[in-house]
Simulated scan of single mutants.
Amino acid sequence: MIVGDAAAWLSAGRSLPDDPSLHYVSFDEMSQRLLESFEPDIILTPLLGQGFDALDLAVILEQYKYKGRFRALCPKLPNPDLVMREIQSLCPSVDFDLFVVDDSDPRRLN
């Protein structure tokens, strides 16, 4: 499951994988019922999305007792451990980590 504004990503010229096993949802759509219907093994989101951030989503996932992995995509950060500690301290049952996306990587989708 990918949480964010897919329409904004497309309008910014980004490509999104077209895979029927991927479900794109907005932050506002996130609900217990949605999680139960899709049962995602992993949830991906940008560290900073439009109108929300990874911490906002982590709090929701903690409340819904989500047991899968939760990963936030981000650029190289000066202190990624600070982000990790904050989210892990507020949402200790969420399996959270960061995926650093390097814009210079030639394998990166546009």
Rank of each mutant, 00 (worst) to 15 (best):
V83C: 05
G51P: 03
L22E: 08
K67T: 09
V101K: 15
L48Y: 11
S31C: 09
F52V: 00
L73N: 12
R71Y: 13
P20I: 07
Q63A: 07
I87W: 09
L57A: 02
S104C: 12
D97W: 02
F70V: 13
L57H: 05
P17A: 07
L73Q: 15
R107L: 06
P78M: 13
L44K: 01
S89M: 12
S89F: 10
L55Y: 11
S104G: 09
A54R: 02
S93T: 10
V101F: 09
Y24R: 06
S21P: 01
L98D: 01
E36T: 15
L82H: 10
R108D: 06
I87Y: 05
M84A: 09
A54F: 01
I42H: 10
E36R: 03
L57E: 00
D105I: 13
P80A: 00
C74N: 15
I43V: 14
D19Y: 11
V25A: 05
E86R: 11
T45S: 04
D97E: 14
E86F: 08
P78I: 03
A54N: 02
K65T: 06
Y66D: 00
L47C: 03
L16E: 11
H23Y: 08
M30S: 07
A58Q: 03
P92C: 00
A72F: 08
S11C: 13
L109S: 13
F52P: 00
L90E: 08
E39D: 12
Q32T: 13
V3K: 00
E62Q: 02
S104F: 10
F52A: 06
L109W: 15
D103R: 14
A6F: 15
R107H: 10
P78D: 15
D95C: 07
L109P: 12
E39C: 07
D95E: 04
L90K: 08
L48H: 07
K67Y: 04
L57G: 04
L47R: 04
F96M: 00
L98Y: 03
D56G: 00
I2T: 10
L90N: 06
Q88C: 05
V59I: 13
L22V: 06
Y24I: 04
S93N: 09
L16Y: 07
P20G: 10
V101A: 05
V59M: 07
S21H: 04
G49T: 07
S11A: 10
Y64R: 01
Y66F: 09
S11T: 12
D56H: 08
E39T: 14
P20Q: 10
C91Q: 00
K65C: 09
R85G: 12
A7E: 13
V25P: 01
K65G: 10
V59A: 07
D81K: 14
N79T: 11
P106G: 13
F99T: 00
A6M: 11
A8K: 00
D53M: 01
F52M: 05
S93P: 03
A54P: 05
H23E: 11
